[in-house]
Design a protein around this nucleic acid. Structure first.
Length: 599
RNA sequence: GCGCCAGUGGUCCAGUGGUAGGACAGUGGCUUCCCAAGCCACUAGCCCGGGUUCAAUUCCCGGCUGGCGCACCA
């Protein structure tokens, strides 16, 4: 059958030829890591996004936001991307090649983990050891070492006084807006916020078609929960079967998958957190619905060293293409890391007030210093003395038993009369406490999902001794719902009726392609190749036979056809494209048209 | 970023120091009542820059883009 081209090569060729995706800006030589989605690809991607939105936003009762792709520098100082997302590069003065400065040091000295050293020290080390360019041998001493940050930098407004960055993940847009989002959620956990949008990373080396690009689309859900109180609806996915590849199995070459159910995986602790387990189950069903080949799909647990330091547990959804596993989604338990960071760096409140079941009465030691005494006595230090007293009251109430109490302010001991401090123990009613919600983050790569769907949908078979290639895309995501053809194009009545049908179907909400060129077989193959699930053909038999006018509906994957009255067409197409009915049901209900029977 | 390989119509390829040919696809027409048929006509190409040369798509250098391996992937 097909020669030795890989799945990826066939896919790239089909994608270019049929308008799924192609390298962007080709007229000017192109730009690595950027792709344009053509008419088919844009429609497919949009359908994938809609399907994701329906499942992870609408069905979950979450809400979607759309944050800017550019955010000011402090956002990324808080998130850690500014410090933790860069490499140290040194450029050779002779040949102009760039090298990882930390790697040069590690390779040529006994030092390890040079990445964590300050830049000045790295420069000193290069001079001290007289390191040379690995490419041309030139001496690198004295050359500046620069940070290469993987974020795209820009300036907000004129001048360069306000640096901004293109977000490297959509998530920060949600975290940053948490204070407002929580108001919208009426300050009650749990709730989830989603976002579908672009993210940008100035990758050193973009690879593998649309799998690793510099601009890509993510669909992310940030599920905010109270770690002590909130539980997912695990029952709804308890019996969903999943293929797991736990960290413990990945050490050996012959590590084995664990075939189990979501419920068991959580109960046995293979998946450490119920929320993660829940989303694995939801994702499993969603991927199946949009058309991922589940025999080429698994959930892989991150190894301990691979995990971000804040992630308690992390699983990836992976799909297989050309024998390689590619990460198409990540499921991370991020704890309170992100919200805490933004809480520390900004003035806003990133906590939620959690009421106790019953208000608690607590005894609290307080002071209420007489500032009319402290003021004149301590001058500018008065306020500091006050807060030192408050702090001492909480820490050591016994200090107020004597007539005088001493506190240390700015290295000096200050003596205050106990009367002036006005120490007392109060009963306070506390109705709750502020907590920082924990976050479970299912994060989907939309482009990689599209890539997987195309790769898994690509099939070849034989029809009448000829090879045929077709995309078995799910009707849920296929760019076009239905093709409409007159069986032959030189009969006006067939053409007119076909065109009228196109209008009807479009008004009914279908995405329709009309085609009357060449032979009918060629038109079928064309639609097969772009994955249109159904074709409707208007023929003379259907108009001239006794009974109501009828047309044929052809199923893409099997090339079977049934004859359906035109009056029932919209209803039946809606049923089969929504998945409500299988084509087999139509075969039961209507006459099967045998290929070539009429000729 | 490093190393190896590659870049010719829309796609996949052949070829040449004197500016190119096929297959498939596409368009128009003829034919056609069910699966890439046939006939006629047409559209359309040597990645970019520099060098060598009378002459470069071809040879050399650089760049860009792509593939693979390494590295990277917070």
């Amino acid at each position: 059958m097909s020669e030795e081209r890989t799945e990826g090569e066939r896919l790239a060729e089909l994608a270019k030829r049929r308008g799924y995706f192609f390298g962007a800006s080709g007229a000017y030589g192109g730009a690595a890591g950027f792709y344009t989605f053509g008419p088919q690809g844009a429609a497919l991607k949009s359908n994938v996004e809609d399907a994701w939105r329906d499942r992870f936003t609408v069905q979950e009762g979450n809400f979607e936001i759309e944050a800017p792709t550019i955010m000011p520098e402090p956002v990324f100082e808080a998130s850690g991307h500014l410090d933790g997302f860069d490499d140290m590069l040194v450029e050779c003065p002779e040949c102009g090649t760039s090298h990882r400065a930390d790697h040069l040091i590690e390779d040529n000295t006994d030092l390890e983990d040079a990445e964590s050293l300050p830049i000045a020290e790295v420069e000193d080390l290069i001079a001290e050891h007289d390191l040379q360019c690995p490419n041309c041998g030139a001496h690198l001493a004295g050359e500046p070492v620069e940070d290469f940050n993987l974020m795209f930098e820009t300036n907000i407004g004129p001048g360069s006084s306000t640096p901004g960055y293109l977000r490297p993940e959509t998530a920060q847009g949600i975290f940053v807006e948490f204070p407002r989002i929580k108001e919208y959620a009426r300050n009650s956990l749990p709730f989830g916020a989603t976002q579908i949008g672009r993210a940008y990373r100035n990758e050193i080396s973009p690879r593998k078609s649309i799998v690793r690009t510099r601009e890509f689309t993510q669909a992310e859900l940030e599920q905010f929960v109270d770690p002590e109180r909130d539980e997912p609806d695990l029952d709804s996915v308890r019996d969903v079967e999943v293929t797991l590849y736990p960290a413990t199995e990945q050490g050996a070459d012959d590590g084995e998958y664990v075939e189990t159910t979501v419920g068991e995986a959580v109960e046995e602790g293979i998946v450490g957190d119920a929320w993660i387990g829940y989303f694995l189950g939801v994702a499993q069903e969603w991927y199946e619905r949009v058309g991922v080949d589940m025999d080429r799909f698994r959930f892989r647990q991150h190894l301990a060293g691979e995990r971000a330091h804040y992630a308690a547990d992390c699983w990836d959804a992976e799909s297989e293409v050309d024998g390689d596993w590619i990460e198409i989604a990540g499921f991370a338990y991020r704890g309170d890391y992100d919200l805490s960071k933004h809480g520390e760096h900004s003035d806003d409140d990133f906590t939620i007030f959690r009421q106790f079941d019953e208000p608690k009465t607590v005894e609290k030691s307080v002071v209420d210093p007489d500032m009319s005494v402290l003021g004149p006595e301590f001058g500018g230090d008065a306020a500091d003395v006050q807060s030192a007293l408050e702090e001492l009251a909480e820490r050591d109430p016994s200090a107020f038993e004597d007539e005088e109490v001493s506190v240390t302010v700015g290295g000096e001991t200050k003596i205050v009369d106990a009367d002036v401090a006005n120490f007392r123990v109060e009963e306070q009613t506390v109705s709750g406490e502020h907590i920082t919600p924990h976050v479970i983050e299912p994060s989907f790569g939309v482009d990689r999902t599209v890539y997987t769907l195309l790769a898994h949908a690509y099939h070849e078979d034989e029809v009448d001794g000829e090879t045929r290639s077709y995309l078995s895309l799910s009707p849920a995501v296929a760019p076009t719902d239905v093709g409409v053809f007159p069986l032959v194009s030189n009969v006006d009545e067939l053409v007119d009726r076909s065109e009228a049908l196109v209008d009807d179907l479009r008004e009914s909400g279908f995405s329709v392609v009309y085609d009357d060129s060449g032979s009918i077989g060629r038109r079928y193959r064309r639609q097969d190749e772009v994955g249109t699930p159904f074709c409707v053909t208007v023929d003379r038999d259907g108009l001239e036979d006794e009974g109501p006018d009828s047309v044929t509906i052809r199923e893409r994957d099997t090339a079977r056809q049934v004859r359906v009255p035109i009056d029932a067409l919209v209803e039946e197409l809606r049923a089969v494209t929504s998945g409500e009915r299988a084509f087999d049901d139509l075969v039961e209900a209507y006459d099967l048209v045998a290929p070539g029977a009429d000729s």
